[in-house]
């Protein structure tokens, strides 16, 4: 390649960077044109708050996928943690009474459970050397079954007084911005900084790119992998803390398909499924694209909302085609 060609390539707008942003902008434009209510504060808050659960999880998923892993268990994990959180709060109600100490105990339960669940996945994948797909397929079934069993096939409901108390965690906010949006934004910003500027992000990309090179370069490959799963588990815990106040209940249908939505958002955002490269801001854009499609279909009459999944599927495939790149031959 001559230097002139390189220069030209450097100036050409990079579809891999711009693609997701353009798609998002197009969706916003389409939404605004189709429905005057689309850009209202109420609708925007609604869309962003609902996407916060998947978004928080997808930030963690970005690290897992970047380091060459995968986690299918996060949806079931969220349901299980939600059920556990409700059970613990209900059980401690006579001791602590309905108040913020009890709410904090519930939150601590979620974080600890998320950490442990992430450690279990990570341990099985790194130390036991079982493929991530298999391990998390297994834990996915286990958590789903456990929450169904805990709820005895029905719904686990939080005590009514507590439900009223923690409702603001989902519905209120600061300066008109709801708490889920604030938490999602904080998680995304921290994730982006860690991915781009911290040694951990660099190590995750190195492990996903070629774990042998990482090992020969004195990187503790297993620890990096394990950490991505623990990090994801903690974020599932945080997402659950945001989710439980919304309905105050958990059942076997909680968090169904969250794992696939999170993975889809990561891929739409430009992270490579086989690992080695990830970008958190892209994941955030991916989450927004997926929720906007859902929202626009609900607001307009032209296309049935039942086609939501089909349109999302097309977007995912398109994203991957557009982001395909010629890689250095090795």
């Amino acid at each position: 390649m001559s230097s002139a060609e390189r220069l030209e390539r450097g100036w050409r707008p990079d579809l891999r960077v711009l693609g997701p942003l353009l798609a998002l902008a197009a969706l916003v434009l389409i939404g605004a044109l189709l429905n005057g209510n689309f850009l209202s504060a109420g609708n925007i808050t609604n869309v962003l708050s609902r996407s916060a659960f998947i978004g928080i999880i997808a930030v963690g998923m970005t690290f897992v996928i970047t380091s060459g892993g995968l986690d299918l268990s996060v949806g079931s994990m969220a349901a299980f943690i939600a059920g556990l959180m409700i059970l613990v709060m209900n059980a401690l109600l006579p001791v602590l009474g309905a108040g913020w100490p009890l709410a904090i105990a519930g939150m601590a339960t979620a974080i600890v459970a998320g950490t442990l669940a992430g450690m279990i996945n990570g341990f099985l994948i790194t130390t036991m050397r079982i493929e991530a797909f298999i391990v998390t397929l297994g834990t996915m079934g286990i958590y789903r079954s456990l929450v169904t069993w805990l709820a005895d096939g029905g719904t686990l409901s939080l005590d009514f007084g507590m439900r009223t108390l923690i409702r603001p965690i989902y519905f209120n906010g600061i300066l008109g911005i709801s708490f889920p949006i604030i938490v999602f934004a904080l998680v995304a910003i921290c994730g982006e900084v860690v991915m781009r500027r911290a040694a951990f992000g660099r190590h995750a990309a190195a492990v996903g790119s070629n774990d042998r090179v990482a090992r020969y370069s004195s990187v503790d490959v297993n620890r990096v992998r394990l950490t991505t799963y623990v990090f994801l588990g903690i974020l599932v815990g945080i997402a659950t803390i945001m989710y439980v106040p919304r309905l105050g209940a958990a059942s076997s249908s909680t968090g169904v398909l969250w794992e696939l939505e999170a993975i889809a958002a990561v891929i739409i955002g430009g992270t490579m499924l086989k690992g080695g490269f990830g970008r958190v801001w892209g994941t955030v854009v991916g989450v927004l694209i997926l929720s906007l499609i859902d929202n626009i279909l609900n607001l307009t009459d032209g296309v049935s909302p039942y086609l939501n999944g089909a349109i999302q599927g097309v977007i995912i495939i398109l994203a991957v085609i557009l982001q395909r790149e010629k890689r250095a031959e090795g």
């Binding site: 190195a206 790119s209 070629n210 042998r212 090179v213 020969y216 490269f277 250095a328 090795g330």
Partner: peptide, 10 residues
């Protein structure tokens, strides 16, 4: 160097 030494895509 190609598969143990360097990350070729980086």
């Amino acid at each position: 160097r190609k598969s143990r030494g360097l990350l070729l895509s980086q």
